[in-house]
């Protein structure tokens, strides 16, 4: 487990790119007292400019592509993109649909892929911890 600074201070911006909302339900569950990640200093931030981590779900819908790219461009280094769920990871149920891409995490060059349809809150917490570890390695 990461012991660096990011382990206790992670600003998360969440991007939904054609998800079914199941992944969002489990991301929201992280705020339940059973997990309560705010106690670890993690939270959803109001702007990509404040973010250390971009979590992304869905196969990447055509309509979201541009806004998603702008969001990632707005984040300052160091940051990590985390693909949440099978759709974002590239082999979810929607990855071959009409106006969907091959996984939003693949398009946005995610470094971490949290698998599951949807991933459990425990898996999500592990994924975010791994992101903190990566960030601690990258920080200048």
């Amino acid at each position: 487990m990461s012991q660096g600074k990011f382990a206790h201070s992670l600003g998360i911006r969440h991007l939904v790119c054609g998800s079914c909302n199941g992944c969002e339900l489990e991301m929201n569950a992280l705020a339940a007292p059973q997990y309560d990640v705010s106690q670890e200093g993690w939270g959803i931030v109001a702007s990509p400019r404040h973010a250390d981590v971009i979590t992304v779900t869905g196969p990447m819908s055509d309509a979201m592509r541009h806004a998603a790219q702008l969001t990632v461009e707005a984040v300052s280094e160091p940051f990590v993109v985390v693909a949440v769920g099978d759709c974002a990871s590239g082999d979810g149920v929607w990855c071959e649909a009409g106006s969907a891409g091959p996984g939003a995490g693949r398009e946005l060059e995610a470094s971490i892929f949290v698998r599951g349809c949807p991933p459990s809150p425990d898996a999500l917490r592990e994924g975010l911890r791994a992101a903190a570890t990566l960030l601690d390695g990258r920080k200048s």
């Binding site: 790119c17 054609g18 196969p59 819908s61 309509a63 929607w94 649909a97 009409g98 106006s99 969907a100």
Partner: peptide
């Protein structure tokens, strides 16, 4: 809305 449109029905 429609940002999550994946053209599922034709597919």
């Amino acid at each position: 809305l429609s940002y999550s449109h994946r053209a599922l029905e034709p597919w």
